[in-house]
């Protein structure tokens, strides 16, 4: 008969074995699929690149992972925009978070191609069935006093304040580029229109808070294999980002 100590030792050994197996699996996964190495297979030289698990095509990024409540919040909201054929793009902090940045946010910035007031009113009536506008309860005020003036309104789940969708109309060149050159992110089968990553990195560098620099660095480091470096350099030049900052936060950018 086993004594308590034996059982404990056995349990510890089982746990250690499990952890070791996980470590071995992770290191194998790392070596075989992710580390940048060159393998020769039947005379062909194959380069295996260390990168996050996603598929990138010209206009689509396909990404599967566990969704957070924030992801569900965003997915549900944009479904309403799509239902009303309203062209939109998601910009700023959520772009970094959706790819795994370890920070939270109180708002998700959504830019919408300016609809007529009639279309906006129809959209509003549908939105407020589920969400609440924290700025105003009058759609005319929202359209005339906020959105048409270049200001945003915020929609949160009813009875809550954060997180919220910061909803804005297209205002300025950067918004135009974001919406016209938007990419489709397919997140677990759900389509989200996101701003070009190159523009987001440059824009974050322009904004210039510690959080923004870190978002830019995160996106650049994580997705550099998938970025159009020429395009990124053009945006960096357009936003007049100092070379010292580029050197510090976007290491390796030529």
């Amino acid at each position: 008969m086993r004594c308590e100590g034996d059982i404990l030792a056995s349990f510890k050994s089982f746990q250690e074995n499990k952890q070791n197996k996980r470590k071995v699996y992770q290191s194998l996964h790392y070596c075989v699929h992710r580390e940048k190495t060159t393998k020769v297979f039947r005379g062909l030289s194959i380069q295996l690149v260390k990168c996050v698990e996603l598929t990138v095509t010209e206009n689509k990024i396909i990404f599967n992972r566990e969704l957070s409540l924030l992801d569900h919040f965003v997915i549900d909201f944009v479904k309403l925009l799509e239902k009303h054929h309203v062209n939109y793009v998601i910009v700023s902090g959520y772009i970094a978070i959706v790819f795994g940045r370890s920070r939270n946010t109180e708002d998700v910035d959504v830019i919408v191609e300016n609809p007529s007031q009639a279309i906006f009113n129809i959209l509003w009536n549908d939105i407020i069935k589920r969400y609440e506008c924290v700025n105003t309860s009058d759609p005319n005020d929202a359209y005339m006093d906020y959105l048409s003036e270049g200001c945003g309104i915020r929609f949160a789940n009813k009875g809550t304040f954060i997180p919220n969708i910061e909803f804005k109309f297209v205002h300025g060149n950067d918004d135009c580029i974001s919406i016209t050159q938007a990419k489709t992110l397919v997140l677990n089968g759900n389509s989200l229109r996101i701003s070009p990553l190159e523009l987001q990195i440059a824009y974050k560098m322009y904004l210039g808070s510690d959080k923004d620099f870190e978002d830019a660095k995160f996106l650049f480091d994580l997705l550099r294999e998938h970025l159009d470096i020429g395009k990124l350099n053009t945006f960096i030049a357009s936003f007049k980002i100092k070379k010292t900052l580029v050197k510090r936060y976007l290491k390796g950018l030529q």
Binding site: R65, E66, L67, S68, L69, L70, D71, I97, G100, S102, N104, T105, E106, E132, C133, V134, N135, T136, S137, D138, D141, A156, G159, T160, F161, I162, P163
Partner: peptide, 18 residues
């Protein structure tokens, strides 16, 4: 990541509107 993000989803009362 999801566990971390989900901790930010706590109900807050809605403030006064215009």
């Amino acid at each position: 990541h999801a566990d971390f993000i989900n901790t930010g989803f706590k109900k807050q009362p809605v403030k006064n509107k215009k």
